[in-house]
Design a protein around this nucleic acid. Sequence first.
DNA 1: CTGTTGATCTGCT
DNA 2: GCAGATCAACAGT
Length: 186
Amino acid sequence: MTILTRSFYDRDTVDVAKDLLGKMLVRKIDGNIISGVIAETEAYRYKDDPASHTYGGMTERNQAMFGQVGRAYVYFTYGMHYCVNAVARSPDYEAGAVLIRSLVPKKGIDFMSKQRKIHDISNLTNGPAKLTQALKITKKEYGEDLTKRSSLYVTDGLEIKKSEILSGPRIGIKKANDKMWNFKII
DNA sequence: CTGTTGATCTGCT
DNA sequence: GCAGATCAACAGT
């Protein structure tokens, strides 16, 4: 498995969201290797996207989305949940990131079960806040470099054909529902 | 400072 | 289907 290079994230946020489907998200922690195939993503941009955290400018919380591409943007929401994004945008664009919504567990299923305190594999990482809990991703991973063999990175995975990608409106948001920026594998 | 809202999940009805 | 957990950003006072 080869790690995706910085240039992979150096393109339009929506294109990167599509291309991340089928790739492997790898987490190294306490000597454990945990990995899963990315099965669902959402693109979030900037001024043309009222639903994005960055709409309205940079804040202390969202500054990672304005920073170097290929890094992790982790945010806290609803008082108890973390969600993880990969910073991605074309070079002439100010901000953007891809929310990783769902994984198919591959390695480290024992570790994930322990984190989530459940044994139902199909319920382990099928939601944005579930997968961060399963992979033990917190604000410590804010800004982690996904293009290096660090504690969190993304590698090559399955080949996904265009006909296998389903797009639709993003889930759980009320603004900008005309943007079909949710992508998943059939 | 105060009140509202939210890229969520769980558990109960 | 809906309440509850519980916090950061933001708009308003």
